[in-house]
Amino acid sequence: MLSTPALVLAIMLFGLGLIGLLSRRNILYMLLSLEIMLNAAALAFIAGGARWGQVDGEIMFLFILTLAAAEVSVALGIVLQLSYRFRTLDADAFCEMKG
């Protein structure tokens, strides 16, 4: 199966991203981990498209790329505001909304 190594890589990238997201406390690194997870998902779509010989996978990749760019621009704006307000980038410090 041609696509199997690509899928394995995608799973590994996704796992790395998730671990990074959960273990890092710096919000910038959490954003980086999120990007890695998005790219892992995109890679899985590419692999699927190659496996079935369809263009749908690549189209989904383009969508995810656009979405990631939009998400990063919004997220960086929020991060900027957070660092102004709290003078820190520690995600655990932003816990004023607890129940």
């Binding site: 998730l18 959960l22 406390r25």
Partner: peptide, 18 residues
């Protein structure tokens, strides 16, 4: 009882989603 799960920590939410 349920409101204890609302910690405000974003990483806790991410973990519960996962």
């Amino acid at each position: 009882w349920l409101s204890h799960t609302q910690t405000g920590h974003v990483r806790w939410y991410a973990a519960t989603i996962a």
